[in-house]
Write a protein that binds this DNA or RNA. Structure first.
Lengths: 339, 339
DNA sequence: CTGAAAGCGCTTACAG
DNA sequence: CTGAAAGCGCTTACAG
């Protein structure tokens, strides 16, 4: 319960004094940038340990171009895909000895975008990774100044414009999932998407492409929020119809909500209705029935994004987009249609 | 495909030149720290907009004590509790106009702890919030220098030592959950905890206290990992025993794994065995049966932690710990024991 | 009220 | 190989 002593962190000059060397010499042993006599080196290390010295990052990044902070700009942090991607970035950054800062873009409004971008750029950042998972992220990536190392992360199959991109090919995955259902014998596949923000997602595009290629009817898209509750509500409506035998969902949570609604209304999944999700969240394999879904490797996505950023900070330009096609994981929630 | 122009961000001096005022004047209008003539102010704002100027945070924090970065030190980022807490911190920080940086402590080893702490402290941070959800976090909080604003976040019921703390009273919650099962008529309650790292968690302590208070037998603790797969394995063992009628689990994922194993082995939850989880993750209310669990408000926890940190940076000391007791949410996975 | 000067803690030429 | 000096982009006394 003593009053805390006011904290004056030791600075490089303190170390120099204690080790009886000059300030630049301490800097040199710290950065290993030039040869320093072993004896001095030794004294410096002892002084650092004795004083508990830690370099001041602000000062360091003011003078040098070397940065230890990479910034992430995202529409959120806690949803499955966001959290996993951020984790992937963090792990890769850690291996490179860098910390990661996160700034959430609250909405796609001009004010929120500007505020988030300003906050990010006022940190001494090596570059920024933008999660283009929603409109807020999309807007943010367009507000970044040219010349700053940056990479966008999203669900496309090719980058647009010259900016570096780490992508998951949602379109191919959506198509694959829909084709699987068609191959099982379903005449068509219904689709409950997430909120449509301006344009359809790759998942939705892939679904439509598969139906068209198979000459199947293209039912109207049902738009839900990304959560299970919203899926449940669509599930109740679907339970009342007799024409729906297969549903491809925008994500796993919607799929789980739909399955629960269907079974609550006396239908059997997959005997009466087949359901496919998107993401392969950890718990969905435990569900009854275990969910057939698309495995998105977000952690790998984040890791690839960081790799691209690092190469940019090292001066590489015009990097090819890094794109991966996710796998369909077949489990228990899909079957041939009822006779 | 033009080669990117090398990026030289405009600095304060550029704004001063463009607005035809002195450098300190620009600083003043930026920070609103002193009266500036409306006309000059106007010119400065125009110059800022024209040049797209953004203050350099490194330089700013070098000279002033004002910081726009708050650091989080944690053993992970993607698990439910971690992600939610970080989100709570982020939302509160955003409202205060601050960005958040995250550094993961890879393990409790000296090397990993030191590396994470060094990386954090080399950023221009206003203070650090440490997630004491695991041993890595616990070790990290002890390695931070005195005098630095810091708050620990964890599952205790009181802080230890003088450091500020935002807590969730797991002990009270564990006790409440166990008592509920006892009140339902179970003779005792079994417990599948997470990994025990040195000492038992508050949940386990609360469970034990409830049993002792009720004079019930205290079965041996079963230790699982935090994931559902590990819970499933314990569920298989439990299914073979006939003496287990109620299980209190360290988290929801373990509970879900156990439930699935139990039903896979022909048992009915809750008729044969009651199961209680811990966390109240979003999906568990959709499960069949919907999981009875403890609702931990991690987002609120993060928000409280940030509040405490802010007060410290404003000079307050000796802040009381902020502790909240989570609620038991009763759903479908619990019932009286079989006759 | 506004400007010229000093200085925050480092790194990077520049001398020796 | 090592040290004295300059400078990164700001903010904060200090003059006027």
């Amino acid at each position: 319960m003593t009053a805390p002593k006011s904290y004056r962190a030791p600075v490089l000059a303190d170390v120099a004094t204690a080790a009886n060397v000059s300030v630049p010499t301490v800097s040199r042993v710290l950065n290993g940038t030039k040869y320093v006599a072993p004896e001095l080196k030794q004294r410096v290390h002892e002084a650092i340990a004795a004083l508990g010295y830690r370099p001041n990052g602000a000062a360091r990044s003011l003078r040098s171009t070397q940065r230890t902070l990479v910034s992430v700009l995202a529409g959120g942090t806690a949803n499955y895909g966001y959290a996993q991607t951020i984790q992937g970035i963090e792990i890769a950054a850690r291996q490179a000895g860098m910390a990661v800062s996160i700034t959430v873009v609250e909405s796609a409004s001009d004010e929120h975008v500007k505020r988030a971008v300003d906050l990010t750029l006022s940190q001494p950042t090596a570059g920024v990774i933008v999660l283009e998972f929603d409109r807020a992220g999309l807007r943010a990536s367009r507000s970044l100044p040219e010349g700053l190392p940056m990479v966008v992360v999203g669900g496309g199959s090719r980058r647009v414009g010259p900016v570096a991109a780490a992508l998951i090919d949602e379109r191919a995955a959506g198509r694959r999932a829909t084709e699987y259902l068609l191959d099982l014998g379903h005449r068509t596949v219904h689709h409950v998407a997430g909120p449509t923000e301006g344009k359809h997602s790759g998942r939705t595009e892939g679904w439509r492409a598969a139906l068209k290629a198979a000459d199947a009817a293209v039912p109207q898209v049902m738009n839900a929020e990304w959560d299970a509750r919203s899926g449940y509500r669509w599930g109740e409506r679907i339970a009342e119809r007799r024409d729906v035998t297969a549903v491809f969902c925008g994500n796993d949570e919607i799929a789980l909500g739909i399955m629960r609604a269907l079974t609550d209304h006396g239908l059997d999944v997959p005997r009466d209705v087949s359901v496919i999700g998107f993401d392969d969240q950890p718990l969905v394999s435990l569900w009854r029935p275990a969910l057939t879904t698309v495995d998105q490797d977000f952690e790998d996505l984040g890791s690839r994004a960081f790799g691209l950023l690092l190469r940019q900070t090292e001066g590489e330009t015009n990097l090819p987009a890094s794109v991966v096609t996710p796998e369909l994981v077949i489990r228990e929630s899909t079957a041939p249609p009822p006779h």
